[in-house]
Write a protein that binds this DNA or RNA. Structure first.
Ligand SMILES: [Mn+2]
Ligand SMILES: [Mn+2]
Ligand SMILES: [Mn+2]
Ligand SMILES: [Mn+2]
Lengths: 243, 243
DNA sequence: CGATAAATTTAGGCATGCCGAAAAAATTGT
DNA sequence: ACAATTTTTTCGGCATGCCTAAATTTATCG
């Protein structure tokens, strides 16, 4: 039987290949612009020249689509691989928090390595043990075993206008120190938030945070407000989402 | 503060380096002869020339001791690293069996990769979660976090004389098919065994296996009898252990 | 002892994935 | 439009860890 189009195999590629497709995929997870060569280099912490070479290889492998001097996109097979890696990463993070008592700011680096090493069997057993979770500790959606994933309709707190209310659906995990700050302020996933107002010129955003009676007001700087993604309670007049 | 002699750091080396020291260590775990270059190559599945090169590197790194054309041994630091790797490997196998429902013949390959990837934190949390186990699923002893390990006084069933009785303390995990055979025959760790007799010229060994009333007799081939390590019930006359 | 055989090391190469420097293409500003 | 700047690619090299083939050393046997 020759290899066929419907092969589930996916032949996962090296750890480097896996990280490249994962970064290419992640760049468009919450926004639409495809990633440029230098942005890719930046996120991976490698030189631009390394990206040029590896992108050529990804194209040869049928994982990426690339016109020279333009942005890098994934092929269907590349997206499948990326989703499989994202699934691995997020299930591993969930495991580390739920079973090994890691704090949510400690899991990213460990998952970044383990995702390349565990077997499919390991991942599926882990998913079962954890109760088939759909979100990781930071609220990022976990694709299912077939690569299906639904990205919640969420918006960065930083772009919401005064009066807007909703729940925190996702917290960017790219900065561990920020995660620790949020823990210290007792801000977490699914907390209710209301935008009270904002200072002009990129100043802090005043918000009311907290479920039920125990809520408090505080000012959040731009980096914090950009890391918090909010699922709106209801369509609300005067918000910046009409675009 | 300069690096000092009592540094616990150990700077673990590459995955290859880790596998080399682990194999060098393991060769002398149940017996005393140090490993030769070609035996090392055999166990690692690499060419002899690759071993020559890597052994030179291990010596440079202060992990191994080696006179050209003679056997390879570990330095104290090499042994520390090896014990840390053995600990990792065996804790991971234990985790896979106890928490992820792997069969005992499925865990070796997965652990062989994961051992190089998990962090010290991961391993210590895992050890705690598993209740600080001292044996892996095959009965191999798990060194503690400081590298202390006690190797039980056990002997291969294949070398025991008729009349000898004891408990199965360890089952070599190097052949998954053999492990499946033993499962099918319902032979497992801590089972009681009695050597009934043996056919000459490397023929099968007749044994009685099983705890309490439910015991049975069967013949074991040389490979099976060599994989089973027995802790003797009591010193027994007429056994081959006097050497 | 010497000749063969076996084990080990050395020499020359290959694949992967990275780098810095230089060249080429695209973008920007006037 | 075109010169300056930025982005991207190409080029030559390096480090790891592996290989085969060819020495070289050690072991074995008549
Ligand atoms: Mn990774
Ligand atoms: Mn995450
Ligand atoms: Mn290994
Ligand atoms: Mn084992």
């Amino acid at each position: 039987m020759p290899p066929n189009k419907h092969s589930p195999a996916l032949s996962s590629g090296s750890a480097s290949v896996q990280d490249y497709v994962k970064v290419i995929y992640s760049f468009t997870e919450w926004q639409d612009e495809p990633i440029s060569s230098s942005q890719l280099a930046n996120r991976l912490g490698v030189a631009n020249s390394s990206v040029s070479e590896m992108v050529r290889k990804l194209v040869e492998l049928g994982l990426a689509i690339h016109e020279p001097y333009s942005a890098v996109e994934l092929s269907d097979e590349g997206r499948r691989l990326a989703l499989a890696m994202v699934r691995r990463h997020r299930l591993l993070e969930t495991f580390l928090v739920q079973e090994l008592d890691y704090a949510w700011d400690e899991v990213h680096d460990e998952a970044e390595l383990l995702e390349h090493t565990v077997s499919d069997t390991f991942i599926e057993r882990l998913s079962a043990k954890l109760g088939y979770p759909h979100r990781d500790p930071h609220g990022d959606p976990i694709p299912d075993a077939h690569g299906a994933v639904d990205i919640p309709q969420a918006h960065q707190l930083a772009i919401l206008d005064a009066g807007h209310t909703g729940r925190i659906t996702r917290i960017s995990d790219s900065n561990p120190a920020l995660l620790r700050f949020l823990s210290a302020e007792d801000i977490g996933l699914d907390d209710h938030v209301e935008v009270i107002g904002r200072k002009p010129f990129g100043g802090p955003v005043a918000v009311r945070v907290g479920t039920a009676g125990r809520d408090r007001e505080l000012d959040l700087g731009d980096e914090a407000a950009s890391a918090l993604w909010v699922f709106s309670d209801k369509p609300h007049a005067g918000c910046a989402l009409a675009t």
